[in-house]
Amino acid sequence: MQGILEIVDLVLPLAYASLVAVYLKTFLNEEAEPRFARALLWGVLLVHGIYFVARGAHFSYFPLGSKAEFFSWLAYSISAVYAALERQLKQVRTGVFFVSIALAFQTAASVFMEYDPKHPLLLENPMYGVHVIFVIFGVTALAVGTLYATMYLLLNRQLKARELGLFFKRLPPLNTLDRLSRVGSLAGTVVLGFGLVVGYLVALSLPEDFNFWDPKLLITDAVWLGYVVGVLLVRYRGLPSIRVAQLTIAWFAVFLVSVGIGHSFLA
């Protein structure tokens, strides 16, 4: 089994590189057929998902015991979140940006991947695996929503300046970028919320006492609640799209800084 896993580790970066090439062609060529890009994307996600299952079965733990495995999960989650948005909103022009990021993460994962069965015992808890998956996909969706918000602001600025280059001409319309950003942020808020709830359930099941007042947890919960408030404001106050994009970018920056401070200085 390990030999097969090693082969897949070599194949996955090549698969993501193929995705980058196909989506780049779709971005540059307005007449390019998007169906092949979509089919290839879902095919790569299927192979990558089976790889995680096989790796977990081989080592008997949830495959997130190293930085390399974490990078591989980031590559997978970015591609999966983008694929879901693409399927819902029927647009492929921005795919090259996200699969390029996935390629970078998967390349790093494959280069530094280890095959050491040593791992924290917590990774053998299936509920912990569910918690991790929800958290990774939730944060990824928030990041994807933020990237779309950034594209919205950049395109809006270029339209006002009337200086559109090839890059901006090939981006989707402003209303599409706005919808992509909102859907990504909403999905990320919901999924991350589920992840936090499952995490607390896992903590309650641990034999030792768990510190629910850990500053790192409180910071994460506070930032998540900020997203909930933001979603409600956008839903019921009808904020203009440009203001929503600005708030999306600003709060994700707060999220990164807060979590970074919590894990760096409060460990």
Rank of each mutant, 00 (worst) to 15 (best):
M1D: 03
I4R: 07
I7S: 06
P13I: 00
A17T: 11
L19P: 06
Y23C: 11
F27P: 09
L28P: 11
E31S: 15
E33H: 10
A39I: 03
F52Q: 05
F52H: 09
V53G: 04
A57L: 15
Y61W: 01
Y61D: 10
Y61G: 08
G65S: 08
G65A: 11
K67R: 02
A68F: 00
A68E: 04
S72M: 12
S72E: 15
S72C: 08
W73R: 03
W73E: 02
L74P: 14
L74V: 13
S79Q: 06
S79L: 13
V81E: 04
A83Q: 01
L85M: 14
E86Y: 14
L89K: 07
K90P: 11
K90V: 13
Q91A: 00
R93G: 04
T94E: 01
G95N: 05
G95Y: 13
V99N: 04
V99Q: 04
V99C: 11
L103T: 08
F112D: 07
E124K: 02
E124Q: 11
N125L: 09
N125G: 00
V130M: 07
H131M: 09
F134Y: 12
I136M: 03
V144I: 15
T146D: 11
L147A: 13
A149C: 06
A149T: 05
M151T: 00
M151F: 15
L154C: 05
L155S: 07
L159R: 14
E163K: 12
E163P: 01
L164E: 03
G165S: 14
F168Y: 15
P173Q: 01
R179F: 07
L180F: 05
S181V: 06
R182P: 04
V183K: 08
V190S: 05
G193R: 05
V198E: 01
Y200M: 08
L206E: 12
D209R: 15
D221Y: 09
G226I: 00
V228M: 04
Y236E: 05
Y236F: 15
P240D: 15
V244L: 03
A245M: 09
W251K: 11
W251E: 06
V254L: 12
L256K: 01
I261M: 10
